[in-house]
Design a protein around this nucleic acid. Structure first.
Lengths: 149, 149
DNA sequence: ATACATTATTTGTATCTACATATATTTGCT
DNA sequence: AGCAAATATATGTAGATACAAATAATGTAT
């Protein structure tokens, strides 16, 4: 649906104003789709983001700081996210020997299994994105990068 | 910056996966820009969204439900948002005479003055969006609408 | 070696989000 | 009229967000 109808606003001041709102709305739309995907697994979007980052490191340990730098939402409070994941035994935390300020985190086998079973549901998530061709997706990626530049 | 660098991920599974993340990241980027704009006025993004919706109605009263339907984030808890705005005397709430379940809300003069003074800072916000031409902004809007369709 | 700045993480607080449930009122059916 | 379903809003909760401040360990300059 056109953004005008989604939020019942028939006119925008200008194209940039419309773009801001369209962008916010679409971001929210995707966030909600992912939240729905994760709900049966009782993970939040941010927890899943952390798990995928850790899986990307194999089973190596990386610091909280390094995780923050890789997150989509840089403002997430990674300390407390990790607390939750440790409680669920999906990740392991240990103090770094060389720098005792630093907490090093790795994904556990249980965490790995969970991420892998969530990935099996990816086709359903992807099915929401069939409306764009590969070329259009590329163009959209390019324009988004340019928007922020 | 390219999304790959923003989140330190050098490769995505496919263009759609990259698009999801790029979209989430860009949405967050805009959200943060607006939050920064609003900070001196001690308003949150959602409170501002409600005030602008109400201003769009002149000083007429509209229901909580009608406000929800016009919000960018449909999942906001409008009841509690309104509570905060009533506390700040930026809006007025009254019970609808014909349907006593319904709460009708309107913006106050104080609220109107606040929105108007925030609007004076729009140029600074807009300056973050100079990288796109009018045509590119239009194309981006079109692609975003198509993405959700 | 000691003091000061810097860095890494954690904690505290207020607000927001998502969702389930509760309350109050109105509508529709018989 | 009387009662169940629907509607409008409010409340409860667990978790997330944004930001400030606290804690702890390390680096550095003299």
């Amino acid at each position: 649906m056109e953004i005008e109808k989604e939020i019942k606003q028939n006119k925008f001041k200008d194209e940039i104003h419309k773009l801001m709102i369209n962008q916010l709305f679409t971001g929210k739309w995707i966030t909600n789709l992912i939240a729905k995907q994760l709900k049966p697994f009782k993970l939040t979007n941010q927890q899943y983001n952390v798990l995928r980052i850790l899986r990307g490191q194999g089973k190596n340990y990386i610091s909280v700081n390094a995780i923050s730098g890789r997150m989509i939402d840089k403002m997430s409070n990674v300390s407390r996210l990790i607390d939750k994941l440790v409680d669920k035994k999906l990740v392991v935390r240990k103090v770094n020997r060389e720098d005792r300020r630093q907490a090093d985190i790795a994904i556990s086998q249980k965490g790995l299994d969970l991420v892998n079973s969530i990935e099996k549901t990816e086709p359903e998530l992807k099915s929401n994105f069939n409306s764009l061709s590969e070329g259009e997706a590329k163009q959209l990626n390019m324009l988004l990068d340019k928007l922020r530049s």
